[in-house]
């Protein structure tokens, strides 16, 4: 199967119309990209789409491997123990930092070395079309006026989104029940059937409901408005000082040579700028934010400090 799929990928390389960049040959093939997400899940689809565009540019084949278990801890441990030759990477999301801080596994996020950051994922607050709320400020006002009646939902316990809602309660000074779920699908049902006032999630999770007009966006938790949704006000504009950054990138074992890291940065920059890929990630409202190794390292470090502070503030960790 794997061999067959490699052949299929090589075939794709021929068919692709992307201009092949002139560059030194990448030293390893196939490159294994490891994710903690299950097949068809967020990071899995991200990797599979990315590799589709990377293959013709880098001239090597890619294999996506789903290593589940331990909320990402198993996948991180596997990559950390692999050879630092550019042959194995882990698809990073905030989850691996959360898990490291909350479950303290044998190998934490510090065990990996970030090599690139590719996208930032905007987090949005949404509700069903029938809901009386038009903006996030409406929903917060409702929560203020009816203490103990507000019901908010996040996809997973101890996720970045869950923490964001807890912070929202603090910043806005309201009481609300925060229900956690077993993934975005469960959450969506409870938003659609009116059990919840609103849910929090990424655009791609709610895309189909959004297109069908079944859900309404109340606010976005970024610094600036999204180019795709110019009318959608940020939380900050609505008087709530809350921003949430979610990212997608790659990290490898420690000790990857500089030339490989540099090669990744140029390749990712080229691929992200290509029209074919733009069309795909544009649909998911992913914001390209390519960072090379040095930047990615600093970004990840800053992110981890932020999350640690938030968790401490909420009393979840000491």
């Amino acid at each position: 199967m794997k061999r067959l799929s490699v052949v299929a990928l090589a075939g794709l390389a021929f068919l692709a119309t992307e201009p092949v960049l002139a560059q030194t040959k990448y030293p390893v093939s196939p490159v294994t990209l490891v994710t903690h997400s299950s097949p068809g899940g967020g990071s899995d689809v991200f990797l599979r789409e990315l590799t589709k565009h990377l293959t013709p540019v880098m001239g090597v084949s890619f294999a996506v491997e789903n290593v589940r278990g331990g909320s990402g801890a198993a996948a991180v441990a596997k990559v950390a123990k692999s050879a630092p030759n550019g042959g194995t990477f882990y698809a990073t999301t905030p989850t691996y930092i959360q898990t490291s801080l909350l479950s303290k596994p044998e190998v934490g996020y510090e065990g990996l070395d970030p090599i690139v950051i590719v996208f930032l994922d905007p987090e949005v607050i949404y509700t069903r079309a029938e809901s009386p709320f038009k903006t996030l400020a409406d929903a917060i006002a409702h929560a203020k006026a009816n203490p103990g009646k507000a019901k908010w939902g996040a996809a997973n316990p101890a996720s970045l989104e869950r923490i964001a809602l807890e912070r929202l309660k603090r910043t806005a000074g309201v009481q609300a029940a925060v229900a956690t779920h077993e993934g975005g699908g469960d959450l969506m049902i409870n938003v659609l059937n009116g059990t919840l006032d609103f849910g929090i999630g990424e655009i791609q999770e709610i895309r189909s409901q959004l297109d069908a007009g079944k859900v309404r966006l109340l606010g976005v938790l970024t610094d600036k408005r999204l180019p795709d949704f110019p009318q959608l006000a940020t939380a900050k504009e609505q008087g709530i000082d809350l921003t949430v950054t979610k990212f997608r990138g790659l990290a490898g074992p420690k000790g990857i040579p500089d030339d490989i890291a540099a090669q990744w940065e140029t390749t990712i920059r080229a691929v992200v700028a290509s029209d074919a890929y733009k069309a795909e990630y544009g649909k998911e409202s992913l914001v390209p934010a390519v960072m090379g190794r040095a930047e990615a390292r600093a970004f990840t470090q800053r992110f981890a400090v932020d999350v640690t502070n938030n968790l401490k503030e909420l009393g979840v960790i000491k």
Binding site: G40, V45, R48, G185, E280
Partner: peptide
């Protein structure tokens, strides 16, 4: 609804998405 009710449905959802299709209404 675009909601995968099981692991298998989630993989199928992934299959749709790779082809730029979004199951749902």
């Amino acid at each position: 609804l675009g909601i995968p009710g099981s692991n298998s449905a989630a993989v199928l959802l992934g299959g749709f998405m790779i082809h730029g299709l979004m199951p749902g209404p």
